[in-house]
Every structure is written in C-alpha cells, then in structure tokens.
Amino acid sequence: MPVVKDFELIEHTADVGIMAYGDDLKEAFANAARGMFSLIVEVGSVRETAHRDIEVTAPDEESLLVTWLNELIYLFDAENMLFSRFVIIELDTARLKARAYGEPVDNTRHRLKTGIKAATYHMVEVDRSKGCRVRVLFDI
C-alpha cells in the first residue's frame, strides 16, 4: 500500500501531536520533524540557506524519536532556527545522525504560529507493522 501522506495532526485537549508515516524509519522520523515544524510556521516559507548537523543517542527507538524532536525544538528556541527539510543519514535503535536544512527566523517573511515546549513520551509509538508509522505528542 503506498503511503499517501507524510504526516497528520492528532488533537488532544491540552496539546497536539503528530502521526508521521514513511516507507522506512528514516523517512517517518524526517516526516515527524517536518510535521512538528508545520505547527510552528508555514513550512513552505522556510528557505534552505543554512543547515545543522544533529547527532543524538537514546536507549530505544521511541526515546530516539522524542530526543530527535527535542533537539530540533532546542535549536529553534536557542538559535532561532526554522527547518523545512531533514535528511536522516544514520538511524539505528540507539543513534540518529541527521542534517536539517532551513534558516533563522525572519519576522518579515515568517509568521510564527505555535510555540512548542517539548516532545513528550506520552503515547509515543514507533510502529513498523505496515510501512513505518510514528506518533508523538507535544506540550505546546
């Protein structure tokens, strides 16, 4: 069955989440990151003028997903970086290496929507039964 969408939003009373899909885990993790930035900004308005190399480790795949997204939240909050494209270079159960492409916030072109405090472990899921599907909820 072909994957028809990259990600969708999950609603939650206090917060919001992302269900992201991919043919493999790398693609699903990249789509989760893109889904997360779609909450922050119109991703189409983000140019690829800069990049950040990211390497994170965690004890299992679910933690790796949360840690990866929290690293991106940190880069947004501390360095004002918005990202629109993600290339996952390496991904195994304990380690992720990626390059995220984007640019610093420019208030003349970017209309920021929602701030995200963190990705949480609540109901986090990595499901490989039909393609790859990952779920994460945010505190916003």
Binding site: A118, Y121, M123
Partner: peptide, 27 residues
C-alpha cells in the same frame, strides 16, 4: 524550564529501570 524538564525526563527515564520501578506511562 522546558529544557530542564526535557533533560530530566530523559535522564530519569533511564533511571526507572535501574531502580526497578514499573510505570504505565513513560512520561
């Protein structure tokens, strides 16, 4: 504050097993 919580949920998430604590939700 957000980062302190993020850091320590991750750290204590690893400590849970070490201390033999069983939880229904990782958060």
């Amino acid at each position: 504050g957000h980062q302190v919580c993020t850091d320590y949920v991750a750290l204590l998430g690893r400590a849970v097993q070490q201390y033999g604590i069983s939880l229904p939700d990782r958060q």
